[in-house]
Amino acid sequence: MFFTIITIFAGIFLRAGVSFLTPLIPFWKLLTTANFDVIFASANYMRSIYNSVIISLIGALIGTFFVAIIALVARRSEFRFRRPLEYLALFPRAVPGIIAGLGFFYAVVWLPGLDAIRGTIWILIVAFILRYIPVGFGTISPALSQIGEELDRGARISGADWWTTVTRIIMPILKPALFSCFALLFIHFFKEYVTAAFLFQPGSEIIGTTMLQLVAQGDNGPVSALATIQVIITAVFVFLARRVLGARIYG
């Protein structure tokens, strides 16, 4: 805990609050808010924060819906290819983020119709959802396995079709797992940057890509300030997700 969490975050927070960090000068003599002033005064940096929040919220909602459908079809249906569908849902875990981003870049360039979303936050939402399907599937699938299949059979005997059974019986019981899936997808989307490296353009920046640009320029103070803001937003979201939604966030 000390070496992997406390030390790292203490270093980030400390660098964000000083003009220069050195063991030769006491840090309390170098305290400043200039790094945060740079972030709040820049429209580009603030836009990256807004974009990250919007992408995470919308992407997590859409991703939770599609992951739930995939899990239900793979585990609670008579679909002929349900087993290959489950393997396909887990496949993105094996693809490195940088390769996934490069693949999306070429897909947007060559496939007809996708050019309309190139350079927008929507291509990032699509890329993040497809990349983190295994995370959501791993959240919903175990909870779905704990729901007895006799509920499905009872509903079918009563005359309900598959969709009615899923929406009226299974989904309400699955609600805690859906909330947890939404929370985990939000956190992963909010911190993601590798996949977006090839896909973002001016106007669709996110926090991760902005930090990469700042690191390349050697602006470590604003990078730490932006990372501090990212950590605070994540902590607030986790608190609200646990308190309001009752989400259980593990892993």
Rank of each mutant, 00 (worst) to 15 (best):
I140T: 03
A143N: 03
I121M: 13
A143T: 12
V109N: 15
L111Y: 14
L185P: 06
S145W: 08
T209L: 05
A160S: 14
R118P: 11
R83I: 14
I121G: 02
H188W: 08
Y106I: 15
G119C: 07
F198G: 06
W162T: 04
F104E: 00
V166Y: 12
P176D: 07
W162S: 06
L90S: 04
V126P: 01
P142M: 02
W162H: 02
I129D: 00
T195F: 11
P172Q: 10
D161M: 12
M211L: 12
A197W: 08
G119D: 07
I170N: 04
T120S: 01
Q230H: 05
L184D: 01
L151I: 13
I133E: 01
I207L: 08
L144E: 03
R93C: 11
C181M: 15
I121C: 05
G138S: 05
Q146P: 08
Y87I: 10
W163G: 05
G113P: 03
P202R: 07
R168T: 09
D161I: 08
Q146T: 14
A227G: 12
P202C: 06
A160I: 10
V109M: 13
T228L: 07
I125H: 02
G136D: 05
R131W: 10
L85V: 09
A183T: 15
W122A: 11
G136H: 11
W162P: 01
I129H: 05
I173E: 15
L114W: 15
G113W: 03
K191I: 15
A160N: 06
P134K: 06
P142I: 02
L111I: 14
V215N: 04
E149S: 15
Q230N: 13
G113T: 05
L184G: 01
F104S: 03
D152Y: 15
